[in-house]
Design a protein around this nucleic acid. Structure first.
Lengths: 142, 142
DNA sequence: GGTAGTTGCTACAGCCACTGTAGCTTCAAG
DNA sequence: CTTGAAGCTACAGTGGCTGTAGCAACTACC
């Protein structure tokens, strides 16, 4: 049985984050000592590891909730898990594309900056006048 | 003089967002009609355009605050604006690198998924066992 | 057995950059 | 003069945590 601190160390999770996962029902309510402190089993460790790994891959908590429920029911179809992962991949690819466009624009801005006074600063000028941009980058880059 | 709605339309900004920018001091307090409604000048339009453009390039609001103040003082050095833009570029590049690693991992996970039952699902299995990953992706992908 | 220091507990505020809602007032067109 | 759109304030909610305050419990050492 692990304390919340040990569990946090073993999984690379902050103590508050573990409590937060319990609060939102992603982790089950932990067993408690007589004094009221949480104690964690190996199954809890596995579940938290799963969650953290999915987070590292960028899955939002709601997707992780679904993945966990799929993982809890091994007889169900794999199809759903696959779909969730594909959705995640798509989002990652979209973000990469957006960021690449931003990168190009920022690069151009900086390249052209002569380092003189703010009045002639290319960086500021480009920001002032959108028409100087090559790409549209309509939506906000995240 | 523009209403807040017209200004929003012209700059692609929601009305609430404009009010929010005023609240946090990014936009100046707008002039008001007798009835208390905000009215905006061309200078306000320029300033909001600048802000939105910088947001589209991913600059955080605090960086934009700095850029605006540099833009307001054309005699100051361009160096600061340049540094802010370089910082932003670096962050974008880092995010791209991270996302590329995630993309690889997700792709591999999905490729290997046979489409059978959840018990043998590669997606779930990889999430369960971090050691199956090629990359480390220690920090959470954003 | 005592005590000091670490870890744990709850409850709540704060982060970023908005977005949405409720309940009202003002404005512009017909 | 009415109607409906657009404006107003104030506040709650989003995601995924993080930080703080003020306690209680556990553990290591003497």
């Amino acid at each position: 049985m692990l304390t919340i601190g040990k569990l946090g160390q073993k999984t690379g999770t902050r103590v508050q984050t573990i409590r937060y996962y319990e609060e939102i029902g992603l982790m089950p309510e932990a067993e408690r000592t007589e004094g009221g402190q949480r104690r964690y089993s190996d199954a809890d460790f596995d579940r938290l590891s799963f969650i953290r790994h999915a987070r590292q891959l960028g899955f939002p908590l709601e997707a992780i909730r679904e993945l966990l429920s799929l993982s809890d029911h091994p007889d169900q179809s794999c199809h759903e898990a696959d779909a969730i992962a594909r959705r995640q991949l798509k989002q990652v690819e979209q973000r990469i594309a957006r960021l690449n466009a931003l990168k190009t624009e920022l690069h151009r801005m900086i390249e052209e900056c002569s380092g003189g006074h703010a009045a002639d600063c290319r960086v500021l000028e480009v920001l002032r006048d959108h028409s100087e941009c090559l790409t549209r980058h309509d939506d906000i880059g995240a």
